[in-house]
Design a protein around this nucleic acid. Structure first.
Length: 272
DNA sequence: CAACCGACCTGTTCGC
DNA sequence: TGCGAACAGGTCGGTT
């Protein structure tokens, strides 16, 4: 599933491939993908526009346009952006939006489960006002303490709450809790200063390594980069999807336990 | 206001 | 082996 490291990988690829390119036409075949403002809005505000830059806030991908508006893409669970210099070698089912550039290259939004979204908005990004600071670019140790203050929820639940901090999802929340040596169900209002610091440092380490490895691609290949290639970060996972395997720190068995409606992987011996 | 939970989806895996 | 059930999970809206 695309979380911050996966979206950041796609952003870096987009920065290389589409910045400076001008959109000749837009084809929308999946209406659910453009449900926020409709197909007409997406097409009318993009044809003739040049992409001048890329940004990311949490899991939101932001493409800056030459009229100061912004093309927003959220991959959610199964969305992928695929770029090709010309006509794509392989046509993918579930292609919902296609952007053709004036130089013959093209970008496609493919999304089997149709949770993903594409829309165009103004530069002040009104749809993202409720989203917290980006976990990679904006978060500091002090800011994390401030964001968690007064919250009564489990560490994992807090980490995946985009209003508290943006970009962390199910996989990296489990990894962060393991690196910090804290149980995912631990209430954040009971974390001491040093433990808060440990969570912050773990966040830096886990996200940094995953970005370096170009994100996590699990067996179902629900995430690939702009060229359709898998990431390599899954090889470094220390708890996620390792139920029954040995903890890499203490050798104890990794377990899977429900937290809220989801499940979390952890080591009961060295996470306290 | 904050926490919680169901709904949204479809491809894949699981269990009988 | 086959088929239906369960599962995967980010976000939103409704409820507690």
């Amino acid at each position: 599933m695309p979380e911050l490291p996966e979206v950041e990988t796609v952003r870096r690829d987009l920065d290389k491939e589409v910045v400076g390119r001008t959109i000749e036409s837009v084809s929308v075949t999946g209406l659910r993908t453009v449900r926020r403002y409709g197909a007409d809005s997406v097409i009318a505000s993009l044809v003739g526009r040049t992409i001048v830059g890329t940004r990311r806030h949490g899991k939101y991908l932001l493409l800056d346009l030459d009229d100061s508006n912004v093309l927003v893409v959220h991959l959610r669970m199964s969305g992928m952006l695929l770029w090709s210099a010309g006509a794509p070698a392989v046509e993918m089912p579930h292609t919902h939006v296609r952007w053709l550039f004036t130089d013959g290259s093209q970008l496609r939004f493919v999304d089997p489960r149709t949770f993903g979204e594409v829309w165009v908005t103004s530069s002040d990004l009104p749809e993202l006002v409720h989203v917290g600071p980006d976990a990679w670019n904006d978060l500091t140790s002090e800011l994390l303490v401030e964001r968690l203050k007064g919250r009564k929820s489990a560490l994992k639940i807090a980490l995946v709450n985009q209003a508290i901090v943006a970009g962390i999802g199910n996989i990296y929340a489990d990894e962060i809790a393991w690196v910090a040596g804290i149980r995912p169900e631990r209430m954040v209002d009971r974390l001491t200063g040093p433990k808060m610091k440990a969570v912050f440092e773990a966040t830096r380490e886990v996200l940094g390594v995953a970005i370096e490895a170009r994100g996590s691609t699990l067996s179902d290949r629900q995430y690939v980069d702009l060229y359709g290639e898998s990431g390599g970060a899954q090889q470094g996972h220390r708890v996620y999807a390792r139920e029954g395997e040995a903890c890499l720190r203490c050798g104890s068995t990794i377990v899977r336990l429900p937290i809220g409606a989801r499940s979390a992987f952890s080591c009961r011996k060295c996470q306290r």
